[in-house]
Design a protein around this nucleic acid. Structure first.
Lengths: 207, 207
DNA sequence: CAGGTTTCTGATGCTCAGTATCAGATTGAG
DNA sequence: CTCAATCTGATACTGAGCATCAGAAACCTG
């Protein structure tokens, strides 16, 4: 089993950084296996040993790829956060911050509407598993940190000044709206498009 | 040690519901001990056994009072949430929801400005300890649940309808502002009053 | 391509949070 | 006083996460 996984991973690599390539491949496979097992048995009903065994890795090694069990599912959000921050910074300066944030979130709405079933079950798991929900909020904090510099710039205030709470408040509020939209989207089984719910959520704050 | 704690707790009770009175007393003492130990050694640096030993309880019994280690510090927030929801519902209907929420939060600002040092160190611990921060967000979710019915009423929409994201968005955004204010308050060491920071934070959203 | 260095791996053992079980003690009600 | 319900400590278990170690693989360099 270990050998099988090893060989299949090796066969897929050839030219540039070898070590790094392996790592990326293994990471991806771990995420796949983890997502499958979690959807089959639930997050808490799946042990790290199970994932490690199925991937063909030892438990200890697995923890060298992902610091926590939750990270196996949530680490992708780090990249998503970067994409949102990038899209946000790319919006024209003529837009008000709130509007620009709304548009930046289309990175998410478009991705989710592209594979709704998958996105729905993923979000459902995120909302129904306490430990995942908790870590998810942590990730959102890192999203805030990524958004705040640009918000501060648009607001004309200096970032990293304690009493300037504007950027923090704005990013937090926007993400709260995003969460509200996502929650509603899951609750209605995707019947109403996520983008519409997000419009309503963020619209409520500026009505 | 066990006897000492037991007797001191018993001596303070006499007439009505005895069993329940004991329970409340023990709970309070656990919170006191936990807060002290956490501030001395940090949250992660303190084991549940330590707390149990100091209070004069077995580990198993301690977990019958508090389901998790975090709850020993955070369960008080449940009561705080109720007070905020109550204050919110008591605001006149003439106020816009956002304004009423701001006023309801004065329950917190006043309590915190009354014992700033204590509040500061408590918030600091909450923000610096990952596991506590995570659970803290969970508590905020329960705050949202407490606020949403009244928000829905003021907004004239029916609660518990999936596609009505307004109340969820509004409560989440308000709490995000509260968090932003609290973060800023801690960051500047309480130099700027919490109420002022909260005004700025929530004002940014309606400017 | 042969050397040494760095990095990764599996194995092992540990800490600690949280759960389950059980027998004995305490409380409260009839 | 007695019986039922509750609370307790003791014990043992699961599972996540950390630390350590020796061996193997991949990288650099001459």
């Amino acid at each position: 089993m270990t050998d099988a996984a090893r060989t299949s991973a090796q066969s897929a690599t050839k030219p540039p950084g070898l070590r790094e390539r392996m790592r990326a491949t293994v990471r991806k496979e771990v995420v796949e296996v983890a997502l499958r097992l979690f959807s089959e048995q639930g997050f808490d009903g799946t042990t790290v040993d199970q994932i490690a065994g199925e991937v063909g890795l030892s438990r200890a090694s697995l923890f060298r790829y992902f610091g926590t069990k939750e990270d196996m599912v949530l680490q992708g959000l780090e990249e998503t956060g970067r994409q949102i921050a990038e899209a946000f910074a790319a919006r024209p300066d003529t837009e008000r911050p709130w509007e620009a944030l709304r548009r930046a979130f289309d990175v998410l709405t478009q991705a989710n509407e592209q594979a709704p079933e998958q996105a729905l079950s993923y979000l459902r798991m995120l909302q129904e598993t306490p430990s995942l929900r908790a870590r998810h909020f942590e990730k959102q904090l890192s999203w805030q940190a990524m958004l705040e510099p640009e918000i501060a710039r648009r607001l004309g205030v200096s970032a990293d000044q304690p009493e300037e709470v504007g950027p923090n408040a704005l990013s937090g509020a926007a993400l709260a709206c995003l969460d509200a939209a996502a929650t509603g989207w899951v609750a209605c089984g995707g019947a109403v498009p996520l983008a519409v719910l997000l419009d309503r959520a963020m619209g409520t704050l500026t009505e």
